[in-house]
């Protein structure tokens, strides 16, 4: 995974070690974990909820949930970054769905949000998965929209079929093919990283 772990120097605790320390109620471990993944977690929550306060609450609750539930983390289900982001994603979508009156504007794509809120330096430095991002941008519009409306928009498959005016099977099919392409991009990214590590 192209997380910070692969680029971190060897003296830093691994993510798995931090989770172990978290289960032992080590606040420093929580701080280090937040420093590693707080930004991407906030970016995700903000993208889903569109409001700073709500995003902040979701990230707060997500990290607290990790703090309380570190014992339930299973490394074979995915890495720590993925585990944390899944918690935050799930909570953000929950919050969004409970606000029945609010739905995000049919968000075309992430980068079409006003860039002025991110400094240019941050925007370029912080895109972790450049290859996946490129692959996402290269997807046919229908596949990309389906994936983004589901993951960032919090729409269920039934809602997606409705707003896109297509059968459920089409929604699933677009997701499947789109995710397969992203999977291949992710694999390419991993291969590049491995090559760089070997150098």
């Amino acid at each position: 995974m192209a997380d910070h772990a692969s680029r971190r120097d060897a003296n830093q605790p691994t993510d798995d070690a931090l989770i172990g320390a978290l289960a032992g109620r080590d606040l420093t471990a929580l701080a280090v974990l937040y420093d590693r993944y707080g930004r991407v977690a906030y970016a995700l929550a903000y993208r889903i909820l569109g409001e700073p306060e709500a995003a902040e609450d979701v990230v707060h609750d997500g990290f607290l949930s990790a703090w309380r539930g570190a014992g339930s983390y299973r490394s074979e289900r995915g890495n720590v970054r993925g585990w944390l982001l899944s918690i935050v994603h799930h909570r953000a979508v929950d919050v969004l769905r409970r606000k029945t009156t609010f739905r995000p504007a049919p968000l075309e794509v992430a980068e079409q949000r006003p860039a002025d809120e991110d400094t240019a330096e941050e925007a370029t430095r912080n895109v972790e998965h450049a290859t996946v991002r490129a692959a996402l941008e290269a997807l046919p519009q229908a596949q990309r929209r389906t994936i983004e409306l589901a993951y960032f928009g919090g729409y269920t498959h039934v809602e997606l079929a409705e707003i896109m005016g297509v059968p459920l099977g089409t929604v699933k099919g677009r997701m499947r093919i789109g995710l397969q392409k992203l999977r291949r991009a992710l694999d390419r990214e991993h291969r590049v990283e491995r090559t760089e590590t070997l150098r």
Binding site: M1, A2, D3, R39, V40, A41, Y42, A43, L44, Y46, R47, G78, R81, G82, L85, S86, H89, A110, E111, A115, E117, D118, E122, A123, N126, V127, E128, H129, V132, R133, L136, I147, Y151, F152, L182, L186
Partner: peptide, 10 residues
């Protein structure tokens, strides 16, 4: 979970 990594951070 790679998708959040495609977002510019805020």
């Amino acid at each position: 979970v790679a998708l959040p990594g495609t977002l510019p951070e805020r």
